[in-house]
Design a protein around this nucleic acid. Structure first.
Lengths: 113, 113
DNA sequence: CCGAATCGTTAGTCGTAACTTACGGTAAGT
DNA sequence: ACTTACCGTAAGTTACGACTAACGATTCGG
């Protein structure tokens, strides 16, 4: 599922989910392994993984009796695009502001004569 | 103040703060103006602006009796860097995984003979 | 100097979601 | 078939933060 940047940010807002993603960054891992490395119970990890999966940030594959999760790099694409666009327009606004400031200073200098 | 990506994500996790940033993207605005465009009260906006300011995402300047806020583009730098690095390592892991899969398939083919 | 306008802060309420416990379900081993 | 291992889900509790209301501070204008 492809998700927009707003919901992606809300999903990534939780520290536990951030920790889960950071752990999965070092390689695919089953649920129990993740829970053992985290200060929360295993069902909690399952619920977080469900949210992450719903946001398209992770994918899972059945492996015997275990469920192995891994990060989906493409899931971050909308957020990256949003941040780039945001940063771009913010920079433009700042440049325009600096220009206006500069023009004002010029005007002040003119007035000082 | 320069903030790490983790706290930046937690700060950006709130929808109201996202809306505030989106409004500030169209130009610097005072608190009252923002509150008028949002479905929350003015103090709520003030508190969110305090958080955003603490994270280095916005800066404010006193203008008479009003306080004008604007986005600080550099505040997003740590998050952008984090996402790039995250995406990079996730891609590498995926590539390595695909390679291993390929090797396994090769091995299977060898075994089939 | 007094009133109006704008804002930050505090105290307190309330809703939400993160968490735990308990349960059921599936797959593999003996 | 029984047991063990691993996991998802449902129900219930709790903690946290987002919000409002009330107050105090600051600045400008008349």
């Amino acid at each position: 599922m492809t998700t927009n940047a707003t919901t992606l940010l809300t999903v990534l807002g939780d520290p536990t989910r951030q920790a889960i993603l950071d752990l999965l960054l070092e390689g695919p891992q089953p649920v129990g392994e993740l829970a053992a490395l985290l200060p929360v119970s295993r069902p909690a990890v399952s619920q977080h993984l469900k949210v992450l999966k719903g946001a398209g940030l992770v994918v899972d594959r059945q492996e015997g009796t275990r469920r192995v999760y891994r990060v989906d790099p493409d899931g971050l694409a909308p957020l990256r695009a949003y941040l780039e666009r945001f940063w771009q327009t913010a920079m433009d606004a700042f440049a325009q502001h600096a220009e206006t400031q500069h023009a004002d200073n010029q005007a002040d200098k003119e007035k000082d004569r």
